[in-house]
Simulated scan of single mutants.
Amino acid sequence: MDQQIIARFNDTILHKAMRRYGIRKDQIKPLDAFESFIYEFERGGKDFILRIGHSLRKSEALIQGEVDWINHLARGGVSVAQAIPSEKGKLVEVIDDTQGGQFLATAFIKAKGQQPWVAGWTSTRYENYGRLLGQMHALAVDYQPVPAWRRPEWNDASLNFIELYLPKTEAIAHQTYEAVLKHIHALPKDPASYGLIHQDAHQNNFFMDTDGTLTLFDFDDCAYSWFINDIAIVLFYISMDAEELGFKDSASFTHEFMTHFLRGYRQAFTLSPAWLKEMPAFLKLRELELYAVVHRDFQIKGVEHWILESFMQIPGFDVNNGGHIWIANFMKNRKTRIEQGSSFIDYDFESLM
């Protein structure tokens, strides 16, 4: 989280947000978070989530666009964590930080179930995952937001993590990024293939109920992009767990996962199969973006570049922190793979057409 935001946050801000949503002190508890302050609270026997962000990161209009999109999906029957109004009926509550900025509070119904790796994956649940994304893309086709609330395009300057965070010394990674951008910019855009997507629908951003129902949340990164990008991002993250899920490599997992995922997806939405050939480009885009973000987060802590390949050497590194282990696995040989031009997943995606 931005250190400026941390410095401006205090109990007064929290208590103001609590009052606006009718939350008592004995009803709320903090949760781990990355870019915002997140709390769980209980009201009327039901569980909710309170999120407090800041205008330094996202404007009020962008957050209005986010919650409007979420509730549009909920009204359309998509399993998402719906945004709820404050005591005054607002979906976004603005709280002045007395330093020229605003904290922005929003609340959501807490998703039912547990983390999917705890609940357990099956082929049917892969299919449910695909159906969920397909339902969302189907509703994106005709969605028309309030113009002032429109979410950013995928290539908005604020989302250009490579230019923002990746050192210029990573010359080959920058060259690779430019080549990927040139390819992606040439792709056609039409309502049947391009619209508002989640852009981060990985396993940390949904819960799975006992019946296999997935409930998606954290739409903080939603933006306009190609629907195939949403699918590539899903595969990007879950493929990193291929060995834990019992597969010898990411290619064999990809075949199993995508077969079931696409079966569910196609039950809800028809995306031209020709888009599957673009999966490698969007996988490479996410690989480079994450590579840049890791540099950002660890440079902030004064970690030298060479140590990014050897996270276990970092003083104070918590080996029990699953997130850190995941990042360590991602960074293993990552620089070499990028500079050698290796595909993120060596798989013939056109075979899935």
Rank of each mutant, 00 (worst) to 15 (best):
D190E: 14
C222N: 02
F219K: 11
T215G: 07
V234H: 04
A192L: 13
L187R: 02
L181M: 14
D209R: 15
D209K: 14
W226Q: 03
K182G: 06
L216K: 12
G195S: 08
F227C: 00
A179V: 04
F227H: 05
Y194V: 12
Q199D: 09
F207D: 05
G195C: 03
F206G: 05
V234Y: 03
Y224I: 10
I197T: 12
L235E: 02
W226G: 06
A232F: 05
L235K: 01
K182T: 14
Y194G: 13
S193P: 06
S193K: 05
I231C: 15
N205E: 01
D211N: 15
A192I: 10
A223R: 08
L216N: 02
I228N: 05
N229E: 13
H198G: 06
P188C: 06
Y194S: 12
D200C: 01
F219L: 12
D220E: 11
W226I: 05
S193A: 14
T215M: 04
D209N: 14
I197D: 13
L187D: 02
D230Y: 02
D200Q: 03
K182L: 13
S225L: 03
T176F: 11
Q199M: 00
A186R: 06
A201H: 06
F217P: 02
L181S: 11
P188G: 04
T213E: 14
D218P: 00
F236K: 00
D190W: 02
L187E: 07
H183G: 00
V234F: 05
Y224F: 13
A179I: 01
T213L: 08
L214W: 09
T210I: 15
Y194D: 09
N204E: 04
I233H: 06
I184F: 06
E178Y: 09
